[in-house]
Design a protein around this nucleic acid. Structure first.
Lengths: 130, 130
DNA sequence: TAGATGATTGAATAGGTATTCAACTAATGG
DNA sequence: CCATTAGTTGAATACCTATTCAATCATCTA
């Protein structure tokens, strides 16, 4: 593939055209990259992280979660909806009460792997105060 | 711990007080949960996902990345800054050109684990069209 | 040294999102 | 059947963030 300057919105000459072509061939289709970003986006909010962490320990109802995070049921419910749509949690209904729990262990692994990561970084000194 | 209704902003009775207490004891301090959310937040953008994917394949300069994603150098540079601050990428300078690459393999693992996840979900049928 | 190019930066803008509020549904119990 | 409570939902708001634009720095070279 040859890059013609007039077709590019980037304001620069191609530096390593051949390398760029190779990388391009190995990139997944756009849709998959969007899905991946969306997946991480759901985990990228402190309220949802707290919900996930709590549900990782124990199945809980909306009311429990509201008390635990000291937030309104409404706010919790909105965030649970996001987790539900991302299939990160599942739920069961018992009378008036809805119990939520993690969808599967695979999710748990990714979640815990991220946690490991930030703590390993912390252990490597000199970023205590950043 | 006893939950007094007047101290709670959530508009409900505590359903499972003892369970909530147990879970609360196992929750990490707030700061760590915020750090975890921030970590995932950085991966939760399609531009940054593309950059990470490309750099996972090959060390590339800003110009290469701009051509690859068909975006301006400025936009790329802004996003690389976010990845840099999250220590997800590192860089080296060679004359005018700045080469970026993934910070370490650990990041790579998390990144690829997330990718596995969305594809496994896809394979489990009946969500092709959602 | 002046011009050109790679890269970064800050301000502005437009689009996205978390929480609140009020209204609502569903289930329970008197 | 009515009051109460768990939970959900939609609209509004306030905050956040990705990209653009213009200006700037740094490096190379003619």
């Amino acid at each position: 593939m040859i890059y013609k300057k007039k077709d590019m919105i980037c304001d620069c000459e191609v530096i390593h055209g051949e390398v760029v072509n190779e990388v391009r061939l190995k990139m997944p289709v756009e849709e998959q990259l969007y899905n991946l970003a969306d997946f991480f986006k759901v985990l990228g909010d402190s309220t949802r992280v707290k919900l996930m962490w709590a549900l990782d320990e124990q199945e809980l109802c909306v009311c429990d979660l509201a008390v635990l995070l000291n937030m309104t049921k409404s706010a919790i419910s909105h965030q649970l909806r996001a987790l539900r749509e991302a299939r990160l949690v599942k739920f069961r209904k018992e009378g008036k009460v809805v119990y939520y729990s993690l969808a599967d262990d695979h999710v748990k692994q990714i979640f815990e792997k991220g946690y490991e990561h930030i703590n390993e970084r912390k252990g490597r000194g000199n970023d205590k105060n950043i």
